[in-house]
Simulated assay, not measured.
Amino acid sequence: MRTFIENAVVIMASFRILSGLIEITAAILILKFNSIEKGLMINSALALVGPAILIITTTVGLLGLTDRISYQRIIWVMVGVTCILFRVKGQT
């Protein structure tokens, strides 16, 4: 029996795997450098990766759903993601 996996799901999973590999690589680099300053620099660079992956995977998922849900719902989801990102960035 052959299972069909949608292209959007494969792309979303691929970006999440990439994100995880970047996180693991960053952890290894932090350990390798054994420096608080360099660890903070690496960690700061990761602050760009998380939101970017969130936006990309959400966009791919929404594009995969365009034939199944209304544009109004897509806009509401994007507004929700934007609110999450603004709130997270405002927690400094």
Rank of each mutant, 00 (worst) to 15 (best):
I75P: 00
R16N: 09
N43W: 07
I84L: 11
I69A: 04
L48M: 14
D67Y: 04
G20R: 05
A52H: 05
R16Y: 04
V9C: 00
V9W: 00
N43F: 08
L31F: 08
T59M: 11
L63C: 09
W76T: 10
V9E: 08
R87L: 10
N43M: 10
S70T: 15
I74D: 02
T25D: 06
I28F: 10
L63D: 10
T59C: 03
T3E: 04
I24S: 05
I17L: 15
G64H: 08
T57R: 07
S14V: 10
E23T: 13
A27T: 11
K38I: 15
K32R: 13
V79S: 06
T25F: 09
Q72I: 13
S35P: 03
G80K: 05
A47Q: 13
A26I: 11
N43S: 14
S14I: 06
V10P: 00
L54H: 09
M41Q: 14
E23P: 01
T58A: 15
R16M: 14
E6W: 00
L54E: 14
F86A: 12
T66A: 07
L65M: 15
A8M: 02
V49R: 06
W76P: 00
L40R: 15
F15P: 02
A52I: 15
M1W: 00
V77E: 05
N43R: 15
A52P: 04
M12W: 01
I84A: 04
Y71V: 13
